[in-house]
Design a protein around this nucleic acid. Structure first.
Lengths: 152, 152
DNA sequence: CCTTGAGTTGAAGTTGACTTCAGCTTGCAG
DNA sequence: CTGCAAGCTGAAGTCAACTTCAACTCAAGG
């Protein structure tokens, strides 16, 4: 009761549903000891792992990538503040890139709102002189399938 | 051939796969005439609708919401630049909000990288004096399930 | 006319991140 | 010692946004 948390407690403390915690465990994101009766008992340090997972998700990282990152933590000792800082720092770049992309989209949108044209290809992307009626492989409208923002 | 596009042509021009265009049609996002032989023929104006869909997706809007927005366009006439501008402007706010949230996350992350604590709840969220060992309903770590960035 | 690439359909499959369910077992308060 | 909330498992379901598939049909060049 002092050194470990039940799944319900970890859930309450982390704000992550028990089903999600079990799911994370299956994916190897967190680990738990078991009681004699096969119930999970979490070390307090797992709370930090869960925090890392949630923060990373907000940055737009997939659970798979998060797992890879967590796997790079030292296995032989409890991770230090520096360990966590190093991990978080790698996301920082990704986050900056997302913000950059979204800001660009906003600016493009601003420009296009002005003229109502909605063809970012003519307004802001390459293919400068090509009208919609042009021949050839035709400029791709907008980005293919990426760099958006998650459903809020 | 002058006033209409085949699905392949619309696909090439918009950068959206034919299967996706058919899917959009099922959802009521775009419309098509049919030839005698039941093939789709798209008016040129549909290109702009597809552009709107893609841009909106990048802002993080769901197809369902996009459909609702598109439904608000005047049905009786071809939408004008102002119509499109009005629609786009409504997303602008959402986009700003996303950028704001991500920027806050980045700043929080910066702060936490410094100390390696990873408990945004202690660093930047409410619950100022509450340590992880505190009693009670326990501060939620991080956001519940929202406001992230899509998988890039 | 014939071939061939492009198009059609409904149904089923995919991916990621979970949740829900059914059927049982544990653990603790009274 | 008993009752019952909390936990366990594997399998199946969900949701969004598509893609893939099988089994055709169309359209246009030679």
């Amino acid at each position: 009761m002092y050194e470990s948390l039940t799944i319900g407690q970890l859930s309450t403390r982390s704000g992550v549903a028990p089903s999600a915690l079990r799911y994370y465990e299956r994916l190897g994101l967190i680990r738990a000891e078991r009681t004699g009766g096969n119930q999970r008992r979490y070390a307090r340090t797992e709370l930090r792992r869960v925090a890392f997972v949630r923060i990373s998700q907000q940055v737009g990282i997939s659970l798979e990538e998060i797992r890879e990152a967590l796997d790079s933590l030292p296995a032989s000792r409890v991770p230090t503040a520096e360990d966590w800082a190093r991990l978080s720092a790698t996301w920082r770049e990704r986050l900056d890139e997302k913000i950059r992309l979204m800001t660009k989209l906003r600016d493009d949108l601003d420009g296009c709102i002005g003229c109502g044209c909605l063809s970012l290809q003519r307004c802001t992307l390459n293919n400068p002189g090509d009208s919609l009626a042009g021949e050839g492989p035709g400029a791709r409208l907008v980005q293919p399938r990426a760099a958006g923002v998650s459903p809020s």
